[in-house]
Computed example of a mutant assay.
Amino acid sequence: MGQGLSCRTTHENGLFTAVQFGDSDTVQTLLERDQTLIHQTTVYDRHSALHIAAANGQIEIVSMLLNRSVNPDLLNRYKQTPLMLAAMHGRISCVQKLIQTGANILMFDSLNGRTCLHYAAYYGHSDCLQAILSAAQSSRVAASWGFTRFVNIRDGKGATPLHLAARQRRPECVHILLDNGALVCASTGGYGFTGKHSTSLSC
């Protein structure tokens, strides 16, 4: 039993390394050898292969995993989805692929209570931000939540994507959000942030 566990762990490490560096041939070989590896996660952060592929912009592997019916909304230790990590790291092709496959844009992590929209705005990835907003206009989010409500969604400390973009000095994201109906609110409480920051960047 111990030897089998050791071998399994070796396969896991090999899979995650191959995913990180975009070695699709090795990924395919490992998954064909042991299909259960597709459900494994890293020990501490509980990142799946899809999380790692999305965060590193490995679109070929993202597509391979999704074609194997991997859930696009898998959660890591902090309840972050692959879409959140792709938006966080500015991996636009992965963001688009995940959205096309049905990834839920209205999920909140447990770290900051943020969505993929918050992360795209915070890190200044305007292309990812626009892709998520476009998806929101044509997805069930628009019908169930309302597009304007989604654009102004607050994180765990009360900050909207606009507040985060302005606070991090991401003028392009600020403009995109304002053009899509983001509201310049008076305060976000937990951040001590006022609308003045947003208007100063929107000029």
Score class of each variant (00 low, 15 high):
142 A>Q: 06
83 L>N: 11
28 Q>N: 11
91 R>Y: 15
94 C>E: 15
188 T>P: 00
140 R>Q: 08
37 L>D: 09
119 Y>K: 03
198 S>M: 02
111 L>G: 06
189 G>I: 00
165 A>E: 02
147 F>H: 03
40 Q>A: 15
14 G>V: 03
147 F>E: 02
149 R>D: 07
189 G>A: 01
107 M>Q: 12
150 F>Q: 03
33 R>W: 14
90 G>D: 05
28 Q>F: 10
84 M>V: 06
39 H>F: 12
100 Q>G: 09
44 Y>W: 14
165 A>D: 01
31 L>E: 07
80 Q>M: 10
185 C>R: 00
65 L>P: 11
13 N>A: 10
199 T>P: 01
127 D>E: 14
150 F>R: 02
159 A>L: 00
33 R>A: 14
19 V>H: 06
175 H>N: 09
160 T>H: 01
169 R>H: 05
176 I>F: 07
38 I>S: 13
105 I>T: 12
166 A>S: 03
122 Y>V: 00
45 D>E: 13
41 T>A: 10
40 Q>I: 07
37 L>N: 13
195 G>I: 00
161 P>I: 01
44 Y>H: 12
53 A>L: 12
67 N>V: 04
23 D>M: 05
161 P>V: 01
70 V>T: 13
138 S>E: 04
97 K>L: 15
139 S>P: 13
5 L>V: 07
128 C>T: 09
173 C>T: 04
63 S>P: 04
185 C>S: 00
8 R>D: 10
129 L>M: 07
175 H>P: 10
46 R>G: 14
19 V>S: 06
59 I>S: 14
177 L>W: 12
121 A>C: 03
127 D>W: 09
202 S>I: 06
172 E>Q: 08
136 A>C: 10
5 L>Q: 11
123 Y>P: 02
113 G>W: 03
199 T>K: 01
14 G>L: 05
79 K>F: 07
177 L>N: 09
172 E>T: 06
177 L>Y: 11
12 E>H: 09
79 K>I: 05
96 Q>E: 15
10 T>K: 15
4 G>S: 07
86 A>M: 15
198 S>W: 02
149 R>H: 06
39 H>S: 12
2 G>S: 12
141 V>Y: 14
143 A>Q: 06
56 N>G: 11
172 E>K: 10
44 Y>Q: 09
141 V>E: 11
33 R>N: 15
197 H>C: 00
193 F>G: 00
42 T>I: 09
128 C>G: 13
84 M>H: 07
93 S>E: 15
1 M>S: 13
1 M>Q: 12
71 N>I: 07
24 S>P: 13
37 L>T: 06
54 A>D: 11
174 V>S: 03
19 V>A: 05
29 T>V: 14
169 R>P: 03
2 G>I: 13
78 Y>M: 09
118 H>K: 00
12 E>T: 05
63 S>H: 04
47 H>D: 14
144 S>Q: 09
35 Q>S: 08
143 A>N: 05
14 G>E: 08
18 A>R: 05
153 I>K: 01
137 Q>S: 04
112 N>E: 08
195 G>C: 00
3 Q>M: 14
86 A>D: 13
